[in-house]
Design a protein around this nucleic acid. Structure first.
Lengths: 152, 152
DNA sequence: CTAGGTGCAAAAGGTTTGCGGTTAA
DNA sequence: TTAACCGCAAACCTTTTGCACCTAG
């Protein structure tokens, strides 16, 4: 009964699922864990190339898919933009900043269950819900506040 | 002060925004309003071809974009699938059915505001939130219930 | 040894764009 | 009359795939 999903390590998970340990796979995972800013596949590719110069974009995509299948990584889609990848396995939502375009994790300590929050039709069966926010990330919100203060 | 967003008609909106009335635009809009099942651009294309046989897919895309810019239609994205289009302007979420793949509108009569529902960090500014559900649509939920009953 | 993984290049799939001709206003 | 719009085809961008070679187990 492991309550913390991140407690299960990369090594454990990869072994358990019968995948191999490769330099590329590990480098892709490390790139995500190192800077948790929801990079696209191309951004991961650029970061990993520093460590594994021979890696190809296709391999980055393959590794990301494997990691996602393992449950070590989650895919974040926003509108029709490139997919982004997120190693945060705790329950959370994403805030898409309207100012800087960045993606911020919002821990979702829901105070209530879905059916308490909304009047859901009785004849649907909800297995899971996803929330995403638009607005200003902490940095941009602060900048905006400063701006407003100055103008007044 | 118009409380019901759908009260503002196609004609009104198109005029107001300075767009032209074209057969294609109207047919695309009618196709969405006629069967509100969140079709993809290609599905809209196929439906509209019955009425306007000369229409092209590019025009369907252009019309959908115009209608979206007008605020007459909303784009619904799910994972990396084709975009779907929805003329329901009332506040609602989407239920993506894990059984039939269909998309159902879920009226969202929220009982509370975002900050009451979740413990949001104090330093973010939320302008709007989107909720999507996975589960079984009414039809499939009913079928599943029947199945379960039978087995027991 | 061998199934799984990698790198490359080509294909796929969805959407957008450029352009010459057409049409609503 | 003319700017907006249409239809077509080509371009675009992200992601997937086929295949020959490589390597972890």
């Amino acid at each position: 009964m492991n309550r913390n999903p991140e407690a299960k390590s990369y090594d454990e998970t990869i072994s358990e699922k019968g995948f191999r340990f490769t330099e590329q796979r590990r480098a892709v995972y490390d790139a995500l864990m190192g800077k948790r800013d929801h990079p696209t596949a191309v951004e991961v590719f650029m970061r990993v190339k520093g460590k594994v110069p021979t890696i190809s974009l296709a391999t980055v995509y393959n590794c990301l898919e494997t990691l996602t299948d393992c449950g070590l990584v989650k895919t974040v889609n926003h509108d029709r933009e490139s997919a982004r990848y997120c190693p945060n396995l705790a329950e959370h939502a994403h805030l898409f900043c309207e100012s800087c375009g960045g993606v911020t994790d919002i821990p979702l300590r829901a105070k209530r269950r879905a059916h308490d929050i909304w009047d859901l039709p009785p004849d649907v069966s909800i297995s899971h819900h996803e929330i995403s926010f638009r607005g200003l990330c902490p940095k941009c919100a602060k900048a905006a506040a400063r701006q407003t203060t100055k103008c007044k």
